[in-house]
Write a protein that binds this DNA or RNA. Structure first.
Lengths: 335, 335
DNA sequence: TTGAAAGCGCTACCAG
DNA sequence: CTGGTAGCGCTTTCAA
């Protein structure tokens, strides 16, 4: 077999078909004004040469790359991959390809990725922030790159943002536990520097305050969580003079770790978790959650982005999506 | 604020700094041979103008796009997103960006996506096949695009391939159930047209044959699964004159649906599932699985790809990764 | 150490 | 209907 490592170009096709380069361009792009007979000859040449248009060159000329960049924390995490899929679907509807990169919660890596996408001249960006300062994007946005922020707001710049209503969701979850008769309720979540963690903690505080229920500091743990921190936190919450009878978990990781620890220690607490997860109905106890519209976050962010690309010039928008309580058992355990 | 929708180019920077375009290129790319004083002037101009190199143009010239395309079934699925993350990490080590697209198991969409990536002139492709015929890739590969197939082999072409040892894994899982004393064991999996489903079913047959255990056709269900098909399948397996006492599930979806149905129906079967999943230790019963090295599939495929890009000309390779039994309880239930 | 010119593969624009 | 020419923003090559 002949290995021809040189890609044929339009010029080659034109030569082979005995027409001008521009005519090949017309055929390739389905532009009108080519006699069927000629088009046929061109198509034969294309097939014989195995020609494929070089979009890089095309896009250099047209200025549109028909691609968007998605910067997230970790594509391996179900939350982000679900969101990513929703973005991809919208991008596909607009004939746009998707570049994805994981920041691992590292502000520097977020910046690197974002600017690499800008250098590729993506038409737009969807960013799940790891950084607290997005001023580095100002020149890019001034140059016409649209950016939409999801899950967490941008830092120090104005841009379209799509969030879950974290505060209200957490408030609903804690209110649900209060409704089941609990008074001493613990909060287990990520470090307060994380935007979503802070908002969810606020919701917890809101609900307790609305119920006139004081919060003992020993009930609250906000830190990056692993098995040990969770074990210690639960011991603290349940070991004092005012032991909690219920637990609100600020994210999936907290919920999973808490379930594991409760199961191992034999403690029986009511539990509501923020964010739904697969098999939540099959774990023991079946887990009551505040579900986010994860796909909705991605879809709406992408739709907003393509509105901007279509020329929308309105001021930056902030959209907050409601959450929803899913009752499965763990949140209905009596005190 | 001045909205300057025209991106500055090297020419603009050159003008502003009072040097030739080529000098700017040298500074931007860190090439030697520029007096520090001049470089300083160029850098100032870059900062003032908010210049960022257009990689599209650069790559057109150099012929390398520093990007790879990943075609998979659904980025929203934890298996693929885990694999994707592993690919991304390797790509990042090689300063390459990642384009991702979901085929939804549709051969036509796989082809579209793959060829779109080729038109962008990605340096290489990693494909989780949905199609059974990859002849459409021959011209692209002849033109120098490297391709590695993962999870399932390519159809009708030769190319590097990284698979799990599906057959052996299933055999191990079924042997484990046989070891616990089961004789009548059911198989619940996807349609036999799916490569992995077929291999895993073979492993089931192997293990039963090795134990001298005949298989009743009513024990085997191979079809796209939903709640109803699983309910019917389980009824068939357990309702006849020779009811199964154990079940081997050919994929995650089958496992989850079976667990749900067993829990709802009160049936108590031993169960081993192919592919590990989060919280497998927390569901009831805690689920014994044959785990694949999902991240390993992605990592090794990507490493293979970059070896090819580095010039490796060896014949196409086939790599099969071993699976591993994780004992958690469901597979150790007595007959 | 610096610069001018050619050209990557394509599309836009204007001639015929 | 068809073709030629200019040029997208950059790198490469060669000359100064």
């Amino acid at each position: 077999m002949t290995v021809n490592r040189v890609r044929p170009t339009m010029k080659d096709v034109a030569g082979r078909a005995g027409v001008a380069l521009k005519t090949v361009s017309r055929v390739v792009n389905g532009e009108p004004g080519v006699r069927p007979q000629v088009a046929e000859r061109v198509n034969s040449a294309i097939a014989e040469l195995g020609y494929r248009r070089n979009d890089g060159a095309r896009l250099l000329r047209t200025g549109q790359t028909a691609s968007v960049g998605l910067v997230l924390e970790d594509i391996g995490d179900p939350f982000y991959s679900t969101l990513s899929r929703a973005v991809e679907d919208v991008a596909h509807q607009h004939d746009s390809l998707l570049l994805t990169g994981s920041s691992d919660e590292d502000p520097e890596r977020e910046r690197e990725l974002t600017l690499a996408f800008c250098a590729r001249r993506v038409d737009g960006l969807i960013i799940i922030p790891a950084s607290e300062n997005h001023a580095y994007l100002l020149p890019e946005m001034a140059a016409g790159i649209a950016a939409v922020f999801v899950d967490r707001p941008p830092g120090l710049i104005e841009a379209d943002t799509v969030l879950s209503d974290n505060r209200r969701g957490a408030q609903d979850g804690v209110a649900h536990l209060l409704g089941a008769g609990h008074r001493r309720i613990g909060y287990l979540g990520d470090a307060p520097q994380i935007y979503t963690a802070a908002r969810r903690h606020e919701g917890y505080v809101d609900a307790m305050a609305a119920a006139g229920q004081p919060v003992d500091p020993s009930w609250v743990t906000m830190t990056p969580l692993d098995r040990e921190t969770v074990a210690r936190a639960l011991a603290r919450m349940t070991g004092g003079p005012a032991p909690v009878t219920a637990l609100f978990c600020g994210n999936n990781r907290a919920t999973a770790l808490a379930l594991r620890e409760l199961s191992a220690s034999g403690l029986r607490l009511a539990l509501v978790g923020f964010d739904d997860f697969e098999l939540a109905d099959l774990v023991t106890p079946a887990t009551t959650v505040i579900a986010q519209d994860t796909a909705g976050l991605g879809r709406i962010a992408a739709e907003l982005l393509f509105q901007r690309l279509a020329g929308d010039q309105d001021p930056a928008r902030l959209i907050e999506l409601p959450t929803r309580l899913i009752v499965r058992g763990s949140g209905e355990i009596a005190p």
